[in-house]
Amino acid sequence: MNQTLLGALCLSLAAGIWGGMFVASKYVLDYIPPFSLMVIRYLIGCTVLFAILRWSRIPRPAKTRSDWLLLGWIGFIGYLVTISFQFIGVDLADAHTASLLTATTPVFLVLFARIILKEAITVQKLVALLLASAGVVIVIEWNAGMGAYLLGSLILVMAAISWALLSVYVKRASAKFSSVEITAYGIFFGMLLTIPFAGWELQATGLAVPNIMVFSGVLYLGIVSTAGGFFLWNKGMQLMEAGVGSLFYFFQPLAGAVLDWLLLGEALTIHFFLGFLLIMAGIAVMTLGVPAKLVSSWYRGQGKD
């Protein structure tokens, strides 16, 4: 399979998985508090990934001190800071606002890819970002009342920024390490850093006895959303330019809307379909190079005249 297509598939699947993650999380969080749930899902996720590393023939290069620092930074910024900010932001605002503001991640990702990875910011990327961003706003149906959640909104923007940083540093780490190893160690360090918060949380709130549905939800979050979703995202970022791959993050609110329709019976309005078309147009512009081809054709036409 073409590398770009494989990367697009991985990123689309990851965003789709996370779009549906909120359905499982909403149920499980009634029984298990947020930081404790993070530790449990990280433990399951990194166990699965380390088992794959142990029993596969994936190369595992020797690590220098700077390599360990990079992997630890990925765990801190991506799997502690980002997820914590998302939990706090949703608590102070609402899920609707969270969906919109965390979908700004690709904008920050393109900027950080320019600063850290020296990727060019082209007209093609800007046009694609504008189209897809407009699509997300339409899907989620922006309303003026969101401004009331100022602190929560600011924290959610910080979550978007930190996830963009994670994606850029994953791209840098992928020059030496496999996506499985990056994800496994990132989740492992994220788990270690989250344990103190979970301990404090459990002292304050305690832990309810889980039933079979909660147990199933935790397994889904640990294996599918954590091990599977994070691996697919990191693999996709390895295969594509960070700025190009960022566009596929916009699939997350689309997947969430479809699953709400399938599982919760919520209606899909005209806003969803209009937003879907704009997001797909943005991805087409980025992956097919529409502006560049139009400009090239125009110049060839001018030459003939």
Rank of each mutant, 00 (worst) to 15 (best):
L268A: 01
F251E: 08
E241R: 14
G289C: 04
A255H: 03
F250Y: 09
N234H: 13
I270G: 13
A255M: 10
V244N: 06
M240I: 02
A267H: 14
Q238I: 03
M280S: 10
I283R: 04
E241I: 07
M240H: 01
L239W: 05
P253F: 00
T269D: 11
F248P: 04
F273G: 03
L278R: 12
L278T: 10
L254E: 00
G275T: 09
W233S: 00
G256N: 06
A242H: 05
P253E: 08
T287F: 09
F248L: 07
W261N: 14
H271M: 06
G256T: 11
A267I: 10
L262E: 07
V285W: 05
Q238V: 07
F272M: 04
A267Y: 06
L247D: 02
I283H: 12
L263K: 07
L277D: 05
F248H: 10
I279T: 11
Y249N: 15
A242M: 11
E241D: 12
V285R: 00
G282N: 10
L259Q: 02
F276G: 08
L274A: 14
F273I: 04
D260R: 13
E241L: 15
V244R: 06
A257H: 04
A284K: 00
L263T: 12
G245I: 02
K235S: 06
G228T: 01
I270V: 15
L259H: 05
Q252N: 13
L259K: 07
H271T: 03
L232I: 13
F251Y: 14
L263Q: 10
V244I: 12
G236N: 11
A242V: 06
D260W: 00
L262N: 05
A255Q: 12
W261S: 11
T287L: 10
L262P: 07
F273L: 09
I283Y: 04
A267F: 14
T287W: 01
L277A: 15
G282S: 13
L264T: 11
A281P: 09
K235F: 02
L277G: 09
Q252G: 05
L254W: 07
M237A: 05
V258I: 15
W261P: 11
M237E: 07
Q252W: 09
